[in-house]
Amino acid sequence: MALLEVNDLCIQFGGLRAVDDFNLNIEQGELYGLIGPNGAGKTTVFNLLTGVYRPTEGQILLDGKNITGHKTAEINRDGIARTFQNIRLFSKMSVLDNVKVALQDRYHYNTLTGILHLGSYKKLEKEMDAEAMEILSVFGMDKDAELLSSNLPYGQQRKLEIARAMATKPKLLLLDEPAAGMNPNETAELMDTISLIRDKYKMTILLIEHDMKLVSGICEKLTVLNFGRVLAQGNTKDVLSDPEVIKAYLGDE
C-alpha cells in the first residue's frame, strides 16, 4: 500500500479549477518530484495536502488513513511536515528554539508546570534540548544553536526549516522549492542534506523544484503538472524525455 494516496483531487477558486483530477501515489521511502511551469498549481497541491485549502473534490489518504479536510495542525500530527517556498522561520527565536517548538507534541507537560518550573519541567526540557541538539548536529548546525534564526545565512535558514520539519517526526516530508534562490554550491549542499535525511531517517519525500539538475539528480519519480492537470507521471528519466513535457516547458517549435 502506498504511503500517500491522492485520488481525483480538485480545487476550485470561483470559476478557476486550480488543480483538477490530480492523482498521486507515493510509496514508503520514495523521493518524489513535483514539477511544472510557473502557475501550474504545484504549491496549491502542497496547500491541499497540508490542509491550508480544503479540496472541492477528491480524497487524500496517508498510510491508509483518510486525512481529507483535516486542519493544518492536525495534518502535521497525522504525519505530514513541510517547508515553504519563501522561508518561514520563527525569526525572533533562537535556532535551538525553532527546533524545540517543533518537538512539543512529543514532550508534554501542562501550563502550570511550565509557569512554576515544577517537577517534570526540568527533566523534559533537558530531553528536548538533547533531542533538538541531536537533530541540529545531523544538519551540522549544532554550533549555531544559540544564534537568532534570522541571523543565519540563507542556505542555513533553508536547512533549519528542514530540520524543524523533521523534528515533528513526519512520515512524509514536503519540500517546496528547497533550492530556490540558492547558488550552485548551496544547491549541492542541499542535495547532500536531502540524501542524508533519506538514508538516515528512511524518509519519504515529495518536493517541488525548478532546478532540473537537482530534480534529475535525486528524484526517482516525477509528476509534471501543467494548468492544474497532470501532464506526465512516472520514472524521472522517462518523464523528462516525454515530448509533451518538453513542449510544456519550452513551448512549440
Binding site: 495542525a73 515553504f84 518550573h117 524543524r164
Partner: peptide, 28 residues
C-alpha cells in the same frame, strides 16, 4: 517562566509566523 516553557515557545512561534506554527502542529 512562561516564555521559557513549552507554551511560551508555542506562543512566540505564532507571533513570528502563524502559518509555519500551524505547519508544525501548533494549535494556534
Amino acid at each position: 517562566n512562561l516564555i521559557n516553557s513549552r507554551d511560551g515557545r508555542a506562543i512566540m512561534s505564532i507571533r513570528d509566523n502563524r502559518i509555519a506554527a500551524e505547519s508544525i502542529g501548533i494549535n494556534v
